[in-house]
Nucleic acid binder design. Sequence first.
DNA 1: CCACGGTACTATACCGGTACAGACATTCGC
DNA 2: GCGAATGTCTGTACCGGTATAGTACCGTGG
Lengths: 348, 348
Amino acid sequence: MTRVTLQTIADAVGVSRMTVSNAFSRPDQLSGELRDRILETATRLGYTGPDPAARALAKGSSGTIGLLFTDHLEESFLDEIAARFLSAISGELAPSGRGMTLLSSHSKGDLVPTRDIPMDGALVYNCGAESEAVDWLRRRKLPLVFVDQEPVRGYPCLNVDDRGGARAAAQHLVSLGHRRIALVTRLDDERVASSYTVTRRMDGWRSVLDEAGIEPVVVNASASTEDAGHAAAQSFLDLPAKRRPTAVLAYSDRIAVGVMQAARDRDMVVPEELSVVGFDDAFFAEHTRPPLTTVRQDVHRKGAEATALLMAAIGQPGAQRTDHRLLPTELVVRASTSRPGRPQATHR
Amino acid sequence: MTRVTLQTIADAVGVSRMTVSNAFSRPDQLSGELRDRILETATRLGYTGPDPAARALAKGSSGTIGLLFTDHLEESFLDEIAARFLSAISGELAPSGRGMTLLSSHSKGDLVPTRDIPMDGALVYNCGAESEAVDWLRRRKLPLVFVDQEPVRGYPCLNVDDRGGARAAAQHLVSLGHRRIALVTRLDDERVASSYTVTRRMDGWRSVLDEAGIEPVVVNASASTEDAGHAAAQSFLDLPAKRRPTAVLAYSDRIAVGVMQAARDRDMVVPEELSVVGFDDAFFAEHTRPPLTTVRQDVHRKGAEATALLMAAIGQPGAQRTDHRLLPTELVVRASTSRPGRPQATHR
DNA sequence: CCACGGTACTATACCGGTACAGACATTCGC
DNA sequence: GCGAATGTCTGTACCGGTATAGTACCGTGG
């Protein structure tokens, strides 16, 4: 038994194939009566509706947009910030009915996702701009929007003011009187060039500390997780009290939580003996003990605006606006930071 | 300027279009020298590689699988359990290089995602079996796997032993001596038929309580969140002490946390004045105060196995095995449950 | 010298739709 | 009563590839 196509139905009803196509895709092009007859015949014959792949080819649109993440996607779902970003995208996308296709940046076998999967455009999030995967997307001349990474000329790009936020965080500590400060950053061992946000936050911290004449202790967390933060904290918490940092600037809230836990393990009191500042303002940040001082970014807005930019680019191809937007960040002061000094000092 | 296609290159090199196609897709079909010449010409002419949509049509495969969630996707990313499921899927899928396309179940305008988006198969998670969206997938005769929902004949289905887990939870409370028990379940107002997992967990609880001759207090949480749990708890915490439940079975860990919070708001001590049991064993469950007794399900395994089943179904179409698997659940007893009685009682 | 198997490439026939420009009959404005 | 607008359907020309069955040529063994 051969497959049921438009032609099968056209023959059965006795009209042209084009008319059947219109019955499905452009109801206003034919009389209601004929349309009903066609649809009824279609159902009777077990027609499933226009074949998506064929339609995608003919129309030049597949109804999905791609999402490219560098990090193993697997982890992104479990990271609140990445998940909120995804959530915002799906929310913004819902009204259009488009699907979102998550792409692996690593090609396996002869299937290179960014080269071989049909899509109408893509969001590139936190990838190295020179990655092979991104290259394919560009070669395909797809509408693209870059988020949280080095801006690319000719494409709309959306970034968060990581540097400004980091500056505010560092300034906060300096103003409180801290002079010995540790930076817990996040470098992938594999990657030579570290991610854009890592660089920007680092830049922000350093610029303030430089101005204040402070040389920070820099340590690397192997991931943006509590455990990695906990492990990273060992190196500077082990220093003799005189040289031990009195404050920490962490790349993320999760790392910050790990650092606070490490301090607690040594019976150190946060913030009196160690002030800690995170980044992102995750939902849990206000429920940590003590509540975490951090730099807020509007992740939801980031996702929504990125999606809107992409939809606009898909709408008017060619009109690629070189829109480079920067979303603001905001220091949120909670209880994990204070002037340096032992707890007793405050009772004097 | 017209677009560069296989033909453009074929003409430029002076070979047939088929040979150019082979140069890209089946390198072993032509001599290395000619292949190099073709690829070089392709690059020079700005050819982007075989068009994915055209290839999908010709090969009958698009390189992606679909994921259909009932609930607004937007929320799923923010729910740890759903996110872990997604994470497992992406992990299992990575080696194959396939993309995963998240589908909205609500069609907007004339674009019905489950009907119009190209894909090679789909995972249906926690949807009403009769939903229109699922219907389209079935009409398309796509390989499907159903997860966490009413099994469908003729398709591989994967479920978790929700009922057994719920029974174990209820049995635990009954064994501890509780006689006044509240059930906090999760019904969508909109949906007439509640979700399968909701029904199964409810069934499990009730079957044990019935056997014990206990008539539970049943309340509904408007969502699977802490806030909804907190709100739902009011109704039974407000009862006079003599009639107030001494224990709660909650649909999810998040709801359970909300219930514990509501108890704390009234200076009630968990577990002595109120025992609480959750469901799922989310990561945070062991860090709540007190650590939460709950029913563990292996979410990662659920995602991985579902994906494997789907890949198998895509591999051998027609060989649709009516595999109905049930993953085990396990009661994890922590500190949020104890025998009923005021704190003082334990000091006697 | 010829059947035979392999390599390298080509010819033809799809895959299943949509866009666009008519063809033909009706209806409408004036 | 006539040209124009409207409504309904058809014909043709793509969209950009892949599968499969050849054809031509070459070396080999008998």
